[in-house]
Nucleic acid binder design. Structure first.
Lengths: 227, 227
DNA sequence: GATGTCTATATTGTCGACACTTTCCCTCGG
DNA sequence: CCGAGGGAAAGTGTCGACAATATAGACATC
């Protein structure tokens, strides 16, 4: 979907590290030792440093001078902050998409939605991950705003995915999210910027509350386990 | 105001380079040769590379593998895109500030505004640069959202400044902007999130239109000069 | 026993050299 | 005269080594 191709060795290492961090193979909060990683990925420390720098600009790791880099900690607070930013940016993306998407692009988006509908009806619930991402990605692209697109796809998107994966979001909210998607596309189709933004913001707010609930439930079960 | 202190040599080089780019000493669109810069700033290429990487995450330069880095081009299109992002993020910041600022912080903000008012009345019009930045910075901080704050102060802010400096914005819009600031603070004081966000977005939209006008005027005079 | 200091160790920051890619220009063939 | 091919030349990517800084542990002191 997102077409990234590695040219340099640093690119490859960056992609590998990013995947390992997002998937949780390198756990949240872990220290990233340059020497250790350079042996593990069989590249020089310079390459590792470059990769870590890029991970830092994605906000997936935090670096301190002379101390080192750690994978970001996943906290309820951080999740809320992330979704607040996402609400602002994707809301604007929906507004701009309503203004700037071509009729053809909107038609394609509708077709995608119908396809998802068939899949959901057929009982496939992989919708959440692939379909949801695909939907949001198209609207982001539809904004035709390069800044916005980069911020969301290079930065925030991977962090959102990290939260989802590591908190085990396989949850429901599939069909309701589908309806919300439909209404957003309808607003874009009507070139109603105001409504498109509002619906997208609500959609993201709902999504946030959904995740917060699970987070709270999980925290509860953890407490019970510890007791 | 923004308290950044350089620890490593890469930090210092990054700050120097950023200043030179924002102020236009290294012109927009210029190529950043690593070897050249390493002699100019008297550091190794590794340091320059690290600095350039950070400039890239600020979106002040664009890098291509095996080709090199260039200072971003300043275009009317890019300005519009930048302000659209700014509108989304600072609008959200104002909303969150209305929710999260302490009464003390709001009181301080009001005091700052009164001080600015005295200065404006006294005919000092340096307001635009220092005062405006200070005002926006406090609201961004007031959002208490670390993500948002980093995005705005580390990334977008410097780009905005680059446009302003290099397009020669010493312009008017001082007193009107001041009134807009007052209304925003009033909304925050009333804890009216909705209004605070709306007013901030309008404020930024006005500011954008103001710059766009100047940009158009400047383009016009350029055409006349060339003719 | 707690605290502070000093040394040893490990890790990050910086450097110069080499490998690879791109670019430019010169030559050759049409 | 123009386009294709083939080297230098310049620039970026990668590497291993050294320097500077932080961490951990032992030891002395209060």
């Amino acid at each position: 979907m997102i077409n990234e191709q590695a040219i340099t060795s640093a690119d490859k290492t960056f992609f590998l590290l990013r995947r390992d961090i997002v998937e949780g193979e390198i756990p949240s909060g872990a220290k990233l030792s340059e020497t250790e990683l350079s042996t593990k990925y069989a590249v020089s420390r310079a390459v590792i440093r470059e990769a870590i720098n890029r991970l830092e600009s994605c906000r997936l790791v935090e670096r301190k001078a002379n101390i080192g880099a750690r994978v970001v900690a996943l906290t309820p607070q951080g999740l809320v902050e992330l979704y607040e930013v996402r609400e602002a940016l994707e809301g604007m993306a929906a507004r701009l998409a309503a203004r700037n998407m071509t009729d053809q692009e909107i038609a394609d988006l509708n077709a995608l939605l119908n396809q998802h509908f068939q899949e959901v009806k057929g009982g496939e619930s992989y919708y959440q991950e692939a379909g949801d991402v695909d939907f949001h990605y198209r609207i982001i692209q539809g904004s035709k705003n390069q800044h916005l697109t980069n911020m969301l796809t290079n930065g925030i998107y991977h962090l959102v995915r990290m939260y989802r994966v590591q908190l085990g979001m396989a949850g429901p909210r599939v069909t309701t999210a589908f309806d919300e998607h439909r209404h957003i596309v309808q607003a874009i189709c009507n070139r109603d910027e105001e409504l498109a933004e509002m619906l997208m913001r609500r959609h993201i707010t709902y999504s946030r509350k959904n995740i917060e609930q699970k987070l709270a439930a999980q925290a509860g079960s953890n407490r019970r386990q510890q007791a």
